[in-house]
Every structure is written in structure tokens, then in C-alpha cells.
Design a protein around this nucleic acid. Structure first.
Lengths: 270, 270
DNA sequence: CGCAGTTTTGATTCATCTCAATTTGTGTGG
DNA sequence: CCACACAAATTGAGATGAATCAAAACTGCG
């Protein structure tokens, strides 16, 4: 985890690939002899310590990729579930839609994160996934993963863990929405992005937001104006600098401290 | 799904079992030759259409049960993950605890629902599970399930689906917390309980709350007072009757209608 | 350069929280 | 069985944080 403090190095997950406007279907899928064993995201996609032979199985599995242009959807709610996806480059949002017409952004997946797990349950997706910038995903047809997981216990356990990790991640979001005030939510959001950039070798203190205020506010269960005011207030407090979508965190411990004094002080006596 | 409308039949999930005050450890686990094939919860626990032979495998797996008295914890955050559990009788709450000392109830599991899936990811639990009344769970040591799932594709797929279903369930909670106002949350909570009682053959219109107002308000991200006022308001509107923990839903379509007109009307133009 | 969309900022309203008091329910011991 | 204390739930009044409404500033794009 290098930090790149100071230097004007902005975290950049700019897409390596361009073009491909095909909005749907199998279009946009390439099969370009991908080598998962060499992939820098390997430890995010797969269980550690695989034997060479096992890794070859996975190469067969993960031979396909799909490119998406900004704004394009990877899948939408109701689409039949076919694959899991790993973000190779770029940035996405997932948006949940309910029967009664409500909509909420529930995550902002980035490189190495897995998409599509919602679909396993009913064999249809329950959310939209949309690229926030030109992006690329690796495609893993689920029936193939599933079959391979019969023989490869490491893969099977990894799948169980990935699904469970998503459950725990969502629990964190639930607690945020249920217990934090507006400014705390914004801080939690920034610190979460910071950590995830850091884990990928980018600066945890300076980065570019790929999502609009609207998308942030949806994710945080707030209005655009409240998010904007929270940013301004944090800037006045010299904790961050915000210039449009460019974020600079001046004082991460200070930001963390804002989260550490919750109204849940009552719990001390439990 | 029988409805039992009208009749003064109150949903009763009273425990069949009593006693056993052992607060922890292996205490309270019985091995009483359970027969999963005959269990009325079978279709909730296991994949459908298992061959007899496969069902015998599962019987071996699920031979253990654990009884809990009201207030006792099945596990707590930080405990090493060992088993998945299925609620046999009774009622629970799951409570998530964050590093910064926040707490929130995230579900109220009842008969047939599965507990412990949060632990797979890190091999330690991330929440507390506490019995709201004297209860009993069936115990499935995860390493045994996991091993059996190598041979039994139906079980393996069922596990993937169960984990995915929990992800989707949490998404619903996220949208509720992110988009609904206080009264809507309370209505959503009541309708959710109603459906789950109905699915178990109990009355969907008349039931007893096992949880306190405090626990409800934590789950809904509100204060006790706001929940209480919402109950009173719904009673004044003749949609429900509330008497302490006894709930009677007079007008389910009317309640559903309260959820159908969200602030997300703006989305019409997207 | 101008126009549409996005973001910020300000003024006001409103929903929910907070604080406080009352009611109701529950358990205990005389 | 009743009196009492204690906990849970309701209700009211007032404070406040976030939403809403409105306008200005900024950005990007043709």
C-alpha cells in the first residue's frame, strides 16, 4: 500500500481501452487469450495459492472480456443472470430498483470488484450496473464457474467467501444509512474511497470522483444540496479540499475522528 | 399460503422447548436423531427434489440442535465462524456492530431462516445474534456442508443461492433506509412481517411482535418515539390496530398503497 | 460565445429528533 | 392481593438537521 503523499499524482483509473459502442447483447465481448495468471488483479479475483494446473482451468474460464463506454449498462434489473463479472478497468455504479419505483445507488465498484452476485438467487438480476467511465470487465459464465467449483475446493470456498463478503459490505452500508448524520455519511464515503484507492496503489489522499453529486447523494440517502453543503463545510474545516470532482483529503485522522463519536454513546451501559 | 383472515387466530411461534440455561459453548447442543427429510422447514433449508440418498447425507449433517432461552446469544461479533444455523423455532435479532461503536439491528430471523452467513467471509462473525424468545436452531458445521457441497451439486447451488438471496434482501433494506420516510419504513416493516408469517401458515393480518420498540426503531433507523407515533397515526387512519405488541392489519392494500407513491416520482423522466 | 446541465449557496419549511412528562405494563416483596 | 419500583411505550412541546424551493455560479460542449 504505497501512499503517494504530497506528489500531485492523482489516482487515475483511466480506461486502457476505447470505443465499442454496441449497447447490448453479446456485442462488445472479446476473446483475446487472456492470461489470468498474469493479471494484476489476480489476488482479488481468485483464491490464493492455486496450483498451476488449477490456474489453467481458470484461464479457460475467464477468457472473455467486455468493454463498456461511459453510461452503458453491463446488465439491468430483470435481465437473466448468466455471468459474474470482475471489473478490469474503469468505474461503475450499481442501482437497485424496487417494485414501488424507488431507486438507489448501492455501490461504486472499481477494479477487482465483482459484479452480478445479486443474480444467482433468482437467476435474474435485481439491479442495474452502469459504467461511470469507459470500462472493461472480465466475464465468468456462472454455470462454468459453478461446474469448476465442484472439483476445485479452493474456488468453491472462494466463491462462498466472496458472497459472504458482499453480505458484510452491505451490512456496513445499512449501519451507515441507519445511524449516521449527513456529514458523517459523506466522510464515511470519502474514507471508503480513499481506502479502496490505496489498496490499488493509488493515492489515498488525492483522487478524482467518477460519480456525480446526484449519484453520491443517492448512495448516501441524502439530497444533492446536503452533500454539497457537507463538502463545503469539510473544506471550511480544512479537512479536505474539493474542487468539482477532484478531492484532496488533508487530514485523514481528523476525518476518522468525526466518525468515532456517534450518538450511540448510550450503548456504553449495555 | 393460507391466510386465516378474520378468525381470532393469532400467529404463534411459541417455542416447543424450554429450559437449558447454559449460556455458551457446546452447552445446549443436543443430538437427538433429527430427521431433516421429515422437517416441515425442509423446503426452506434445502434444495428441492433431493434424491433419498442425498437427503440421508443431509440428515447426517444436520443432526445437531441448540436451544436458546430468551436473551441468549447464538454467537457474537468476533466469534470464530463454525456453523450455519437454521431457525427451527422462535425468533431472533441480528445486530451489527461497527468499529466506531455504532449498533444496528439488521434483521429479525424466524423459522426456516438462515443465520451465520456473515461469518464465511473472514471466518469470524460480524454481528451478534440474539434470541428474542426461547428458540431452537439446527446446526450445520460449515466445513461439513462445504465438503458435502463438493459432491452434491444441488446443495452447492443452493448455498450459492442462499447467500445471493441474503445480498438481495440487504439491498431491500438499504433502499428502505435510503429512500423511505418514517411512516413508510414502519409500514414496510409490518408488511414484511405479515408476508413472512403468511409464508409459514400464520395469519398475515394478526400477529404478535417479538421485538421491543427499541429494536424496531434500531432496525428502521428511527427513534422509539417516531416509531410509536407512526403506529398511532396508522391506527388513527384505521389501517391497523396496535395494542402493545399485538398487531392487527385491517387494510393491507391500503398499507401497500402508502408505499407506492414515493418521492422518486422524478424518475419518471429518466 | 451562448446554452444546458451541474454544482453551490441561500432562505424557508418540514420531518424527525430531543427532552420531558404521563401512562401502561411487569415483576417483587410485604 | 396490593403497594411499589422499574421498564416499556405513548404523547406532547420545542429544537434542529435535512429537504425543499429558488437563484446564482460554474462547467463543458457545440
Amino acid at each position: 500500500m504505497k501512499t503517494n503523499n504530497g506528489a500531485p499524482h492523482v489516482a487515475s483509473l483511466e480506461p486502457e481501452y476505447r470505443g465499442n459502442e454496441n449497447p447490448f447483447g453479446a456485442g462488445g465481448i472479446s476473446d483475446s487469450g487472456v492470461d489470468c495468471a498474469q493479471c494484476s488483479l489476480r489476488e482479488l479475483c481468485f483464491p490464493p495459492n492455486l496450483a498451476d494446473e488449477e490456474m489453467r482451468n481458470i484461464d479457460v474460464l475467464g477468457g472473455k472480456r467486455r468493454k463498456l463506454v461511459r453510461g452503458q449498462s453491463l446488465f439491468r434489473a430483470g435481465y437473466p443472470f448468466e455471468s459474474l463479472y470482475v471489473v478490469k478497468t474503469g468505474f461503475f455504479k450499481t442501482e437497485v430498483l424496487t417494485e414501488d419505483g424507488r431507486t438507489q445507488v448501492t455501490s461504486f465498484p472499481m477494479a477487482g470488484e465483482i459484479l452480478g452476485m445479486d443474480g444467482i438467487s433468482t437467476e435474474a438480476h435485481s439491479c442495474d450496473v452502469i459504467a461511470l467511465e469507459d470500462s472493461e470487465v472480465c466475464l465468468f459464465p456462472f454455470h462454468e464457474i459453478e461446474a469448476l467449483s465442484a472439483q476445485m475446493s479452493a474456488l468453491r470456498r472462494h466463491l462462498y467467501k466472496i458472497l459472504s463478503r458482499e453480505i458484510v459490505r452491505n451490512q456496513g452500508l445499512i449501519v451507515m444509512l441507519g445511524t449516521m448524520c449527513a456529514e458523517e455519511r459523506v466522510v464515511a464515503f470519502l474514507l471508503n474511497l480513499s481506502e479502496r484507492f490505496a489498496a490499488r496503489g493509488y493515492s489515498p489522499v488525492e483522487f478524482h470522483l467518477r460519480m456525480s453529486r446526484e449519484e453520491i447523494s443517492s448512495y448516501l440517502g441524502l439530497t444533492i444540496e446536503t452533500v454539497s453543503r457537507a463538502f463545503s463545510h469539510l473544506r471550511e474545516a480544512k479537512l479536505i479540499d474539493v474542487d468539482k470532482r477532484h478531492i484532496h483529503l488533508f487530514d485523514i485522522p481528523g476525518l476518522q475522528a468525526l466518525l468515532a463519536k456517534p450518538a450511540a454513546a448510550k450503548n456504553i451501559f449495555q
